[in-house]
């Protein structure tokens, strides 16, 4: 079911870090769009243009399927979860939580559920038990992020 996993390499770390940089760009672009149009519009447009871009990339690159077995239907529903996230975020942003509180609590939810998912090997992904070093690293990154969110003026 699960593929054998190799030890993480440096380029995995670099790629994940760079992926976070992409998120900053997305927040900038989509957030600017939301400043002119509705929050729905600011999420609808990138999903529409993203669908077209992904289709073009698929047609050009034609990546091979890693498995001949068709994946279960629920694996196609990741986009629904993403869509609900947009709606929840727009609902909480304008409350007393403000943007910084929404981001901080979202970060907590994301980290906690990711750890739980790793321990259980949820959704057919490889199971991993975090060790002390993982928790220390996680604690440092969360602490640094909270300082930036609440005191760094970057929210």
């Amino acid at each position: 079911m699960t593929t054998p996993t190799s030890a993480p390499r440096f380029y995995h770390f670099a790629a994940a870090f760079g992926t976070g940089g992409l998120l900053t760009l997305m927040v900038l672009f989509n957030g600017t769009l939301a400043g002119f149009g509705s929050l729905f519009f600011a999420s609808w447009v990138p999903h529409l243009t993203g669908t077209i871009a992904a289709l073009l990339i698929l047609l050009i690159l034609r990546p091979k399927h890693t498995s001949a077995v068709r994946p279960p239907l629920w694996t196609y529903l990741g986009g629904v979860s993403g869509g609900i996230t947009v709606m929840l975020t727009s609902a909480t942003m304008n409350t007393a939580l403000a943007l910084s509180g929404t981001i901080a609590l979202g970060l907590a939810g994301q980290v906690a559920f990711s750890l739980f998912a790793d321990m259980r090997g949820l959704f057919g992904l490889p199971q991993r038990m975090p060790n002390g070093r993982d928790y220390l690293s996680l604690g440092l990154i969360v602490a640094g992020s909270l300082i930036l969110i609440f005191f760094g003026g970057s929210a």
């Binding site: 890693t66 996230t85 929840l88 939810g109 994301q110 057919g124």
Partner: peptide, 29 residues
């Protein structure tokens, strides 16, 4: 609202896991 904000974070992770599982059978793109 605090609960909803936490739930939003959980859903970000959930979405990535579901997409990751789909990528295991197909491709990331």
């Amino acid at each position: 609202f605090a609960g909803l904000a936490i739930l939003a974070g959980v859903l970000v992770s959930l979405s990535r896991q579901i997409n990751g599982r789909l990528a295991l059978s197909t491709s990331a793109m």
